[in-house]
Design a protein around this nucleic acid. Structure first.
Lengths: 255, 255
DNA sequence: CATAGTACG
DNA sequence: CGTATTATG
């Protein structure tokens, strides 16, 4: 059994203050994909660095901004930072760890909520990401792209689909992109294990007590190859932990 | 009996969180001279604005920076913001409230701790301040210049005079300036009521638990005319309140 | 609302 | 150490 968690920490230092190491020691995931570290590698709190995990980070050039990481009990046999597109790689958004019989990515798609310019870059990111990810589907190792895609796919994935139909994160072209990703062969593993179930979200605004009222969005995914979907046995969103504005999305795979 | 308090609040909003209105209602000063408001007038918390005091503020152009105020039970018959020197007035450092038989100033001298440039401006401020204040000594109303002068006068006023003899706030030329102010006729009323008493400070660094170890500086003064010194009956530094890194300096005058 | 950054003290 | 700012989400 291999347990993989994905979590946008909204600042690894803040998540540490909120009990990140407690969560790790109580849940013992084999692999943890982190997004939005908002720290340089040397700023990651020591107690996290001293956990019994191998850690790989791909941080942004800009201090306190973006950045992804992968923690794993096993040491990766290979890692890859970025995808060869300068502005994306400078923002620390895509990181791979390859293991003996599994490839894991931590992905942090840009937010488009701050304006048109960033929304355009978000779409550009998605356009780069799709063919990049596709290549790994035809490889001979199971692959999963875990992360914060900053997109809700379907109305069921957002608490107020009507009000948000023109909001970045639920725009038709963004939702269509997720559909394309699935049509190329990826699987939204969490949804596939919870078909039709409502009120399942992975992010809640800090404002207006959104989390306690469960007014959230499901924007964090395990996008798996078909093989891994078959191996997926249990998928949970760990809403009971308040480590950041996101909840960990954890799936156990029988490999 | 007229009770006048002087307090550097290090942010009126922060002081409010730390119990400013409790302090006011328990002590009921007639006049409160405030320094380092670090807020525009409309940002002063409502509970402070709604106290039974008249308030006058002279804020800095730069947001979140400097600024002085005077709260008084009586309504001032006249007020004066600044002293006619642009850079000083833009920084919100000197404010007057005139009453029937008293003139009160709230003064916030620049800090010189951030470097030579600001230290030079501090000395320039002091050079402007001295003749400005002097004029009021020859007037026919009692006058007091309350505030944070950012200078310790004598070794007795600082916990470690030797180590700080080259530190801004205890430099020979700054201490000499205070001596001159006193020689022109002003009185350091708090000291005059506590001659020779040691370990009396009004400011403690937030660092290194300075306050609980009483490693402080006395840099907040009531600089009074001789008439007011004679009227001064009780002078206290209210160290038991933790409203900011300074303690209120409160003197009761029998006028 | 919250986490970063930086300026200032 | 602590209170502000501003950028970002």
């Amino acid at each position: 059994m291999l347990k993989i968690s994905s979590l946008n920490v909204n600042g690894i230092r803040a998540a540490h203050r909120h009990g990140f190491t407690d969560w790790v020691s109580q849940n013992k995931p084999d692999i943890i994909c982190l997004q939005e570290l908002r720290a340089l590698e040397h700023q990651v709190p020591d107690p996290i660095q001293n956990m019994d995990y191998h850690s790989v980070y791909h941080t942004a050039e800009k201090k306190g901004y973006s950045g992804v990481g992968i923690l794993s009990r096993e040491k990766p046999i290979q890692i890859q930072k970025g995808i060869g597109v300068d502005w994306i790689d400078n923002e620390g958004r895509i990181l791979m760890s390859e293991f003996e019989d599994l490839i894991v990515f931590s992905v942090y798609a840009p937010s488009g909520t701050t304006g048109d310019e960033r929304q355009d870059l978000k779409m550009e990111f998605l356009d780069h990401f799709l063919p990049f990810a596709q290549k790994y589907l035809s490889g001979n190792k199971p692959v999963v792209f875990c992360g914060d895609y900053n997109i809700c796919h379907k109305p069921i994935d957002i608490h107020n689909p009507k009000r948000n139909k023109n909001t970045s994160g639920f725009l038709p072209e963004e939702r269509e992109w997720v559909t394309q990703l699935l049509e190329t062969g990826f699987e939204d593993a969490y949804r596939r294990l919870h078909e039709g179930e409502e009120d399942l979200y992975s992010w809640w605004s800090y404002r207006a007590a959104s989390k306690e009222r469960n007014k959230g969005w499901r924007i964090d995914y395990h996008m798996t190859c078909p093989t891994l979907l078959e191996a997926a046995e249990e998928a949970v969103i760990e809403r009971e932990w308040d480590l950041s504005d996101h909840a960990p999305v954890t799936i156990s795979y029988s490999i």
